[in-house]
Nucleic acid binder design. Structure first.
Lengths: 232, 232
DNA sequence: CGACTCCTTGACAGCGTTCAACAGTAGTGG
DNA sequence: CCACTACTGTTGAACGCTGTCAAGGAGTCG
């Protein structure tokens, strides 16, 4: 699914440093909207486009042959995704909610690469490096942390990326969180309940179950217990 | 620990495509030897050098504050490691066995980067991309595969990197394998026993416990069950 | 209203961890 | 040479964290 939308300004919360200069060249980008749940690209599809989230949220993931899913990253407004060095995507990407993105052809965006355009090249390398850093931190989480630590780390990551709002409004469902953290929805739910019972956070009821208020970020950070001081 | 050794030719089994051109510039490299178990660099130390394994093996890892360890990668002869985009290493590195490496100063090796040396730049980006690809595959393994699948995937990875020898001589201990796969030594040992009892492989006895013969690589690959056709 | 999805919670099972015992090998020193 | 210790790896038994299964509440959609 792939719907052209008329041009109108989008209030992205922040545009992080990713590929800043490239992102600024508005002329390169085409505005596209994806409905909740729709696929943006599939694993091993040709990587002809690069994407920037303007509104909404995106998940990128891999699957095992029997359907087990591992989400590699969530992409929030301002984030760029779909950048590949090879010819094909190594992840699939889907819109978590109704999402507006800017799309640029890889060829045009990275035209400078072959010709030695230093700033473009550095931008791409910095971007890939940040992606790698995130993946490396995630390895430690998936390999060695328990369920409560994982959920705490996830909340702190999202909290930080949303710039510590009073209420965290999660765009994703529990299943997405579970597949990001290598857990089941039930375990994610239980971990949230544990943290709630400890007074570290509050979870909305009813329709607001995806809204979370952090009461004690430092106590949350203690549980994560990563020597690495910052995640993202 | 850090011992200069006299110059002599090292029969590296293969030099993989990583940073090929840079690696060929022998003049840039200094030969250094590390004893088994010694630290090559620590996490968050300045990343002033880049390393290439010539003989032996290296593990790179992160730790949680209470000591839990996650090994991110094993580096075998021909592999380059320690390349960072930032100023500091995001992993620690140790020699698994007595190891000879070539060391180059980051500054000299990547001098061309700032000046727009396209081939050097592409080499680095390709290298980082391959590292990222490995980490991404590892995310799926750590988040969603069971113990036997993990051990099978590990064996196939090493087997492939050693170019499918008749006998795989693992340089690392069970603890290293466990910390790479997010398991305990006991679980790794049990998974190996399961695969042995299924006739998929043989494990050496006594001193040869680190030697493994694969009898049925396709059956091993079935257990891994990754849609991704190749790992490395 | 009924059917459906999402989330939480409880009961229980199972996989992997923990704890323990043991074998095999190496190193040390009497 | 042998006793003793230390280390690695395997195996068994018991435990526990997380997964599985099930039920129920809340909300949506037609």
């Amino acid at each position: 699914m792939f719907i052209q939308v008329s041009a109108n300004e989008i209030a992205a919360k922040h545009v992080s440093g990713q590929l800043n200069e490239l992102a600024r060249q508005r002329a390169l980008w085409r505005k596209v909207k994806y409905r909740e749940g729709s696929e943006i690209f599939g694993e091993a599809e040709p990587a002809d486009y690069v994407y920037q989230v303007r509104q909404g949220a995106v998940r990128t993931y891999k699957r095992l042959c029997d359907g087990r899913r591992q989400i590699g990253a969530f992409h929030l407004p301002g984030d760029i995704f779909g950048v590949e060095d090879g010819k094909v995507h190594r992840f699939a990407a889907e819109a978590i909610v109704d999402t507006r993105v800017w799309v640029a052809t890889r060829r045009r965006l990275f035209a400078g690469l072959a010709k030695g355009d230093t700033s473009a090249t550095n931008n791409v390398r910095n971007f890939v490096t940040r992606t790698l850093e995130h993946a490396e931190n995630h390895l430690l989480l998936l390999g060695r942390q328990n369920s409560v630590e994982r959920v705490a780390a996830f909340l702190l990551e999202i909290d930080s990326r949303l710039e510590q709002p009073y209420v965290i409004v999660l765009p994703m469902r529990r299943r997405d969180i579970a597949d990001y953290l290598g857990l089941t929805v039930e375990t994610v739910s239980r971990a949230l309940s544990i943290l709630r019972d400890e007074g570290v956070l509050s979870v909305g009821r009813g329709l607001m179950r995806r809204e979370i208020v952090l009461h004690d970020r430092s106590k949350l950070a203690e549980r994560v217990c990563q020597s690495d001081p910052e995640r993202h």
